[in-house]
Amino acid sequence: MNSSPYRYRQGLKEGIPVGLAYLSVSFGFGITALASGFSAIQAILISMTNLTSAGQVAGAAIFAAAGTFLELVLTQIVINARYALMGITLTQKLSSECTTGHRLLMSFGLTDEIFALAVSKPEPVGPAYFYGLMTTPYIGWALGTALGAYAGQLLPEQIRAALGILIYAMFLSIMLPVAKKSFGVLLTILFAIAFSCAFHFIPPLSAVPEGYVIILSSLLSAALVSFIRPVKEEADREA
């Protein structure tokens, strides 16, 4: 694809809501990490090198349970496998400015929310815009972890509990406006909910670990809807 019309500043601006949301989510991770036996500095180091919520929480749990290195690595691969799919999807959206060097750095910022913002742009996405998108979420993620690790215990339990819903409310605000316009997306979401709930509540499916549930539910529902309702050609597809 040709060069991207989006600049660093636009990415920076569009990443701010994600940065704010990450601040609260990583605040929760800071608290969890301390409870799992990490020091505050260690918790911050984890956030600065991983930049992923589910993987970090799972990693902390394995550390706390004195798990093995192999168990840790396998869990990370399974929980983060969706980033491979997102990465491939996003390559279809990249401008010609995205050289291998840029991709090596850009891939570090491939989170669910940054991906969702970048992939929903109508025009090709370039490195400058993507680095803009990454900036506030990265700072927010590290800063929130630090705040959580150092000061989390000071917040009343009820506020801490209510903050737990932040990330899911964000996910809803990404999905639903698109589902309103695209029947295929609505169908995908409904199938994914059905599969995910089946894997959680119906034995023996409920024995499947969380990471596999996300992978299986999303692969099955996206494949199913791609058969039932393939997207129209590029020109008349909504962004």
Binding site: Y168, M175, A192, I193, S217, S218, V225
Partner: peptide, 22 residues
């Protein structure tokens, strides 16, 4: 099919992560 799949997959991942966890 692949184009459709890659268009739908992010919404599928978000939905599977949100429900029933929310």
């Amino acid at each position: 099919f692949a184009k459709s799949f890659f268009y739908y997959i992010p919404y599928a991942v978000l939905a599977a992560m949100t429900f029933p966890a929310v």
